[in-house]
Design a protein around this nucleic acid. Structure first.
Ligand code: MN
Ligand code: MN
Ligand code: ZN
Ligand code: ZN
Lengths: 146, 146
DNA sequence: TTAAAAAAGCAACATAGTTGCAAATGAAAA
DNA sequence: TTTTCATTTGCAACTATGTTGCTTTTTTAA
């Protein structure tokens, strides 16, 4: 990796943490690195493995929770009872999430993608129900696996 | 409860199990009762509690898994890492699920409903992705809670 | 009624997630 | 730069959730 790029990513991470009034710590930097280094979403287990033996399990839980609270990452519901996390766009800062994209889970490579360009559809509900948030998860084969 | 009704529900349960080549056992009957007695979905925890001290935890897990495999119930993904289960319509029998309805989670009463009349929308995916199954979960206030 | 097959219960284990508290680290003041 | 205070981390202990192998019990069908 060229030096300039790694400096940039460091700055990006530091900025992101500062903007959210979070102190800059090793575990936070490391976990944000994992998210920035790749496209898809990460399950808690992935993060624990890929953060190496470096951090305590509890720290990973607390760090992810903090990031969700601040609007840095968002959760993706899945049918297999393993919550996944992905980076939010900038609009989510300040503890409010404004993600309106759908999610795609490939059952071949098992990756989860945020399809940022696919907006969640309007759902017409029966009388009496009022919607606050719509979550769409599509399951199938991703473009890398066909 | 009038005797006739309780006989009917017993027959219904027995028929459901027989049609799916499942032997008729106390735990299966009890758990199907729970589903038939109410509208919404049940989380694993609910079922364990409401089935009383009567059955082993393991039996509950295995019974639910069997029902999912046979197409008697289906799972509903949620963001809080607690899978919920709801009865399928009859078309799901034979180990194949054909549910195309959406789900609604009320964040007031915390009930989950199958909105059988609301069909999952067509989602237009980016080039290269192919969809197999679309899951929609809407969060908001249900008609009983407003 | 009996015999074979299936399911339930039990124990032991594995994994996931939580909590309180002491030690370590980071941010900001001196 | 050093000190101070607040925040974060790691650890230990715990609860909750889910799994597996095996024995006993129940169900089904001959
Ligand atoms: Mn996303
Ligand atoms: Mn449903
Ligand atoms: Zn794939
Ligand atoms: Zn409600």
């Amino acid at each position: 990796m060229p030096k300039q790029a790694s400096v940039n990513i460091e700055n990006k991470i530091a900025g992101l943490l500062k903007r959210n009034n979070l102190s800059i710590t090793d575990s936070r930097k490391k976990i944000l690195h994992l998210f920035l280094e790749q496209t898809g979403a990460l399950a808690h287990g992935d993060i624990e493995k890929r953060a190496g033996e470096k951090f305590d399990r509890v720290t990973v839980y607390r760090t992810l929770q903090t990031f969700v609270d601040k609007g840095i990452i968002h959760t993706i519901p899945t049918a297999d009872n393993s919550i996944r996390y992905a980076l939010c766009k900038d609009e989510c800062a300040g503890g409010h999430h404004h993600d309106h994209h759908i999610h795609f889970v490939c059952h071949k490579c098992n990756n989860t993608y945020c399809l940022d360009d696919v907006v969640t559809p309007e759902i017409k509900l029966p009388k009496g129900y009022s919607a606050e948030h719509v979550e769409v998860v599509v399951d199938g084969i991703c473009k890398n696996c066909r």
